[in-house]
Simulated assay, not measured.
Amino acid sequence: MIYCIYCWEQIGESDHFCMHCGKKVAEGTKEITNLMMQSEVYPSPITVARRRVQQTKELLFAGYSLHLWGGNGSCCSGCAKYRDRIYSADGKDRRFPTIPQYICTCPGVSIGAYFEGITKISAAKGQNPISFSNRPFLDNRTKKEKTNYIHFVDRRIYTLLNQKDKVTYQQLKIILPEDAPRSFSGFKRMKNEDTKNFSELSKKASSTGMDISYSYAERIVVKRYLKEAKETGFR
């Protein structure tokens, strides 16, 4: 299981092109996926899926079998298909679909008890909650929601790369004390901008066995994140 860096949707490890956005799978995609999956800073996709299962069990234990999955404006295509619906968690109420099982990379959906005749599905806009919950399972995100989702994951990856770079910078100060920038912020600035000085530093580091440069996939994500952050002011 890996994720396309252009749309952050799940693709097969042997795929050469993303079935979601049609772009060629970038070199270094698997490494970025591993970074995301192993992170302790953010919950991994598997952890998010397990949390959904746990929330479902807790609500069932409390006596609530109908669950409302609320929407999120920065969700993946999986959550977009399943959000804003009422589910029969124990499968006994055939008016509603049963709980789906899937893995995602986003804040996902909010899960709560549904009280018939009281709880409202805001996205339904007055439609019958039963028919609305049984609508086709399609990715109905707007263009803006898809952009928000990509920026959300980009921000996570940028934060994780920052952690790696802090370790790299400390190693540089030990191995190349005369060449390492005076501050970590200076190091990040030259790396993000891929300056001539960084290129020279990278060559020196490489001669010692250190790889301090971004991979092709990492550079695409970093450039996109910084551009979006600059344009919107949202980091």
Score class of each variant (00 low, 15 high):
Met190Val: 15
Asp179Trp: 02
Arg94Ile: 06
Val222Pro: 02
Thr105Cys: 05
Tyr114Glu: 05
Lys92Cys: 05
Asn134Pro: 02
Asn162Leu: 09
Glu231Leu: 12
Thr98Cys: 07
Asn140Asp: 13
Ala229Cys: 11
Glu231Ala: 14
Thr168Ile: 13
Pro129Glu: 06
Ile103Met: 12
Ser215Asn: 08
Met210Leu: 15
Ala123His: 05
Gly186Ser: 08
Glu116Thr: 13
Phe198Ile: 13
Lys188Val: 15
Arg141Leu: 12
Asn197Trp: 12
Asp90Lys: 05
Asn162Pro: 00
Leu176Val: 10
Gln163Met: 11
Lys125Val: 10
Asp90Trp: 09
Asp165Lys: 00
Lys173Tyr: 06
Val109Cys: 08
Lys144Ala: 15
Thr142Cys: 08
Ile212Ser: 06
His151Ser: 10
Arg141Lys: 09
Arg156Trp: 00
Gln163Pro: 00
Glu145Trp: 04
Asn134Cys: 11
Ser183Asn: 02
Ile175Lys: 01
Val167Glu: 10
Leu172Phe: 06
Ile150Asn: 06
Ser133Ile: 10
Ala229His: 08
Ile103Cys: 05
Ile157Asn: 04
Tyr216Pro: 03
Pro129Val: 06
Asp90Asn: 14
Arg224Val: 06
Phe96Ser: 02
Ser110His: 03
Ile99Ala: 01
Ser202Pro: 04
Lys203Asn: 07
Asn192Lys: 00
Gln101Lys: 15
Ile99Lys: 03
Gly91Lys: 09
Ser213Pro: 02
Glu178Ala: 14
Thr159Cys: 03
Ser207Val: 12
Tyr149Gln: 01
Arg156Pro: 00
Ala205Trp: 04
Val167His: 00
Glu231Asn: 12
Val222Ile: 15
Thr195Arg: 02
Phe198Glu: 05
Val153Thr: 13
Leu226Thr: 12
Lys125Pro: 00
Ser213Gly: 11
Arg156Phe: 00
Gly209Trp: 11
Ile150Glu: 01
Val153Gly: 01
Thr159Lys: 12
Arg219Pro: 07
Arg156Gln: 15
Ile150Met: 06
Ser206Val: 09
Ala180Gln: 06
Asn140Gln: 12
Val222Gly: 03
Thr208Cys: 13
Thr159Val: 09
Ile150Tyr: 08
Pro107Trp: 11
Ile157Gly: 01
Ser133Phe: 09
Glu218Gln: 15
Thr98Ile: 12
Cys104Val: 01
Gln101Ile: 13
Tyr114Asp: 10
Ala89His: 01
Pro181Gln: 07
Ile212Asn: 01
Cys104Met: 07
Asn192Ala: 05
Ser213Arg: 15
Asp93Gly: 09
Arg141Glu: 06
Lys164Leu: 14
Lys173Leu: 03
Arg155Leu: 03
Glu200Ile: 14
Ile111Asp: 01
Glu200Trp: 08
Lys188Gly: 00
Gln127Met: 13
Gly117Phe: 14
Pro107Met: 06
